[in-house]
Design a protein around this nucleic acid. Structure first.
Length: 892
DNA sequence: ATGATCACG
DNA sequence: ACGTACGTGATCATG
């Protein structure tokens, strides 16, 4: 059964572009229009099963339509560069689909399609026209259906002549009369002023064509008559412009658009380049296809997998150990399932050597024949090349084994190469590096409730493929780190830090259950009092924790003025509530309720759940590959956001204790590290001077911005200056500052102007960093950590502005992160070399927390700030303030 | 699963 | 004119 599908390429690409959120691949190429186009195409191919497919594109800037009307398509927005750059790639993709594409100088896509539908009518072959443009409805006929996209590109509405009649009461041929009367702003077709779709339809139902409307002018009246009378020529010309030209000299035969399905290899390559992971999976092009399909398959097939499950396999173990102990290349993979490495289940270990891959179930590690392997794994002098060795090390430790000598970690390297990448699974990294052959974990295990460890053969094969991928990826990624100038950052900072973190995490921090429980009791009684107060003031009981219900009570029932809205309804955040406080006495109660219930659920109940029964400790997991700026993050539980600002919350810190009697908690935090970094990076003399003399930076800023002496700076001026300093670090905007200070935008702008007048070097830095980010596509920290900012070239104001602020902030926040990481590695070395018993427990971005035995307290009070301040030499001094106590609360 | 809210630097 | 501060994670409610 023959069926032609004719696609209006430009129109669909435009629709897709505006319908899809921005999307780029890691090379910075925008891909959203291509993605939208592709999903639509796949859907139509599947549903329609056409025998012939064509994508037509507009060609050339000037078409024959311009000959009669120069303004045709004038006033149209220039195609955004984010879209233009997608066309060449889209055309490659269509070729990879094995689909024909036509474009012809001087003609638009709809003319080509119009010509072909005429041919389809002549041959009696059914055809489907796919477009985003309703003009094309004029092509509908008994055999030709027009599919118009709606709601983006995911769905189409099918128009047959009957459907057009039903919807508009017109024949397809009358569509051009409709356009003639109403015009089309997007193509700059004028039509008749004052005539929109409604009026045009009424006229056509009465008189059926533009010409007939004109000859019956006398039957019309009023403004309408006048408008049409004065624009008769426009109407006729508009109709002509809207008429699709159906006699394009195509000089092509229909055979050329025969569609016989796509080439898996070519399409897979394109999808990989575009990083369309979901589509790769959907078409099952992922694991076992691509241009290097045969190579990958061959390699996978050649993979000699040896399983080592028990003492009877000691011969294989000998082969493995021979390879490892002779220092041969290897790839190590340790499978531990579960997000939290402190609770992960160790499934197995795989090791790829040059010509064989060995797989061991977790249970085998306990067996006698693994003794040599365990010794090798734990030997710090034997380098390991692996994937997520940080998690591996923790999982092994909890299982009673050790891992030492981490030398290269494919995941950690991938993070440095692109710290915004949140697809750091081995299968994703493997594909991005241009390889194939590692299935996703989801494909092997399933996810969510369907997670299941497969049979041993499947599992072993998966682990073998991963170890093999590590072996293959490590040298390539080492080269990339060199090429991007991040070799030192990687090998001298991040890799050593990974072990320091694992030590801290495994050590854990003691949390006293009874302290939290007492606090919880007090919170519970306060909460119940506040709750009754709220219910009685509201006149009803409701869930105060539901923003939806709370909004209804406040704004509908009590009639308070709603100020801000969220996507889903009224906003009830603290900022809104604080403004509402004067209007109703229920407001302070709600604010208090929120504050206490946060403490109760997150910090009392949440933290209690994380305490290990056996040790009375909590073990956080520092993630080294999450934050785009290079900071650490902390999970299960997050110990980087324990309350401190409000006294009630700060009490939580009383539960954090030394793990040994008589010891102290010692903490040190960097003072103003980000502004000191800014002083160094920008070289601003005034700011440097301030830190060299160790001035109170907010007071100093107030003096300069307000032009007064130190003794004239009042609390309010200092507060404003502090906000300006924060703003500067974040990539300042007048709006942001005005919000923060509750002042007008104008006043905020003049503060900023004043600031830049006295800190000229800072202004220069802000300008320069944005310029260099535009030129290079990325920014770097002092230690050459890199962050790509593809959106800095966007024509979308919001995206671009965001990228510009990020360009200003990332080198500052990122360098501060570099510095404290250096301090951690150096501090770890200092403890070891001096044989100290003190232990590093926590890092909170600019603060390090230790537990210290009494006989080391004095020493540590000197050593810790000394190491932190000396971690990296800047043009201004670094300063660290140290404190100690019997618990974290006291160390302030 | 997603959004709103709020804890931290 | 656009509509914003930078970076995170946990909890709860709700679709």
């Amino acid at each position: 059964m023959k069926k032609w599908m004719l696609i209006d390429g430009n129109s669909i690409a435009y629709r897709a572009f505006f319908a899809m959120p921005p999307l780029t691949n890691s090379a910075g190429l925008h891909t959203n229009a291509i993605f939208g186009f592709t999903t639509m195409l796949l859907k139509l191919l599947e549903e329609q099963k056409p025998s012939h497919v064509l994508v037509a594109f507009d060609a050339g800037k000037v078409t024959f339509r311009h000959e009669g009307y120069a303004e045709y398509k004038g006033g149209r927005q220039k195609t955004p560069p984010e879209l233009s750059e997608q066309f060449p790639v889209l055309k490659e993709l269509i070729a990879a689909f094995g689909i024909a594409q036509f474009e012809l100088d001087g003609y638009e896509a709809d003319d080509i399609i119009g010509t072909l539908t005429l041919e389809a009518d002549k041959q009696g072959v059914p055809a489907l026209v796919v477009t985003g443009d309703k003009d094309m409805l004029q092509l509908a006929s008994s055999g030709v259906t027009v599919a118009v996209t709606r709601k983006g590109v995911s769905e189409v509405e099918l128009y047959t002549p009957d459907a057009i009649n039903e919807k508009y009461g017109l024949t397809p041929g009358q569509i051009i009369d409709l356009k003639g009367l109403m015009g089309d702003t997007s193509d700059n077709i004028p039509g008749v002023p004052g005539v929109g779709e409604k009026t045009a339809l009424k006229l056509l139902h009465e008189y059926s064509s533009v010409e007939n409307v004109l000859s019956n002018l006398d039957k019309l009246k009023g403004k309408l008559k006048e408008n049409i009378q004065n624009h008769q020529e426009d109407a006729v010309m508009s109709k002509k412009l809207a008429t699709i030209f159906r006699e394009v000299p195509l000089e092509k035969s229909i055979d050329e658009i025969t569609y016989s399905g796509h080439d898996d290899a070519k399409l897979g390559d394109m999808f990989r380049r575009l990083e369309f992971k979901s589509l790769l999976e959907r078409l099952q092009l992922g694991a076992e296809s691509g241009a290097d399909e045969s190579k990958a398959q061959a390699a996978a097939a050649e993979l000699t997998v040896t399983s080592l499950s028990g003492d009877e396999d000691s011969e294989g173990m000998d082969r493995l150990m021979l390879a490892l102990e002779s220092g041969g290349e290897h790839g190590l993979f340790i499978e531990a399932v579960g997000e939290n490495p402190h609770h992960a289940e160790l499934l197995g270990v795989s090791l790829a050597t040059a010509d064989e891959v060995f797989v061991l179930p977790a249970s085998a590690l306990k067996a006698a024949f693994c003794e040599r392997l365990n010794a090798w794994l734990g030997d710090e002098t034997k380098p390991k090349y692996g994937f997520d060795l940080h998690k591996s090390e923790l999982a092994l430790r909890w299982a009673g084994h050790r891992l030492g000598g981490a030398a290269f970690d494919v995941q950690l390297a991938a993070y440095l190469l692109d710290p915004t990448d949140n697809q750091l699974a081995l299968s994703s990294i493997n594909e991005r590096q241009g390889f194939t052959g590692v299935p996703t974990d989801e494909a092997v295990y399933g996810k969510g409730a369907k997670f299941k460890v497969p049979d041993e053969e499947t599992l072993f094969r998966h682990l073998a493929l991963k170890a093999h991928a590590v072996l293959r990826l490590a040298p390539k990624m080492t080269e990339e780190l060199k090429a991007t100038g991040m070799e030192k950052l990687y090998f001298e900072l991040e890799q050593p830090l990974s072990r320091v973190l694992a030590d801290m995490e495994h050590q854990g921090i003691k949390v006293e259950r009874s302290v939290l429980e007492e606090l919880g009791k007090s919170l519970e009684s306060q909460l119940s009092t506040i709750m009754s107060g709220i219910y009685s003031l509201a006149g009803t009981e409701f869930n105060i924790n539901s923003p939806k219900q709370l909004g209804e009570i406040l704004f509908d029932k009590l009639g308070l003025p709603a100020r801000k809205k969220t996507k889903t309804g009224y906003s009830t955040d603290a900022e809104v509530l604080e403004e509402l406080a004067p209007y109703h006495e229920i407001i302070p109660l709600i604010l208090h309720f929120r504050q206490l219930s946060k403490l109760q659920s997150t910090y009392v109940e949440g933290l209690l759940k994380e305490i290990r029964e056996e040790t009375g400790k909590v073990h956080t997991y520092y993630r080294q590959t999450i934050a785009a700026t290079g900071r650490l993050s902390s999970q299960f539980p997050n110990l980087q956001n324990i309350p401190i600002r409000l006294e009630e919350g700060r009490q939580i810190r009383k539960a954090f204790l030394p793990s040994e009697p008589g010891w102290s908690i010692l903490a040190a935090d960097y003072s103003q590290i980000e502004l000191r970094v800014l002083a160094h990076i920008s070289g601003d003399e005034n700011l440097k001077e301030a830190f060299i003399h160790d001035m109170d930076i907010h007071t100093k800023t107030a003096m300069d911005v307000f032009g007064v002496e130190a003794d004239k700076v009042d609390a309010n001026m200092r507060r404003s200056a502090k906000a300006v300093n924060f703003g500067i670090v974040y990539g300042i905007s007048d709006f942001g500052l005005s919000q923060n200070l509750g002042i007008t935008r104008k006043d905020a702008a003049s503060f900023i102007e004043q600031y830049f007048n006295v800190f000229k070097g800072v202004r220069q830095y802000m300008d320069d960093i944005v310029t260099s980010a535009k030129k290079d596509g990325y920014v770097t920290t002092l230690l050459d950590r890199r962050r790509y900012l593809p959106e800095i070239k966007s024509s979308n104001f919001n995206l671009r502005s965001f990228a510009e602020r990020t360009a200003m902030n990332t080198p500052i926040q990122g360098t501060a992160a570099d510095i404290i990481k250096l301090a951690m590695v150096q501090m770890d070395e200092a403890l070891k070399s001096r044989g100290l018993k003190s232990r590093m427990l926590l890092q909170v971005h600019d603060e390090l927390v230790f537990e210290v035995p009494p006989d080391e307290l004095e020493l540590m009070k000197g050593l810790l700030p000394e190491v932190m301040e000396g971690a990296l030499k800047l043009d201004v001094p670094l300063k660290a303030d140290v404190s100690f106590g019997d618990n974290w609360y006291e160390a302030k």
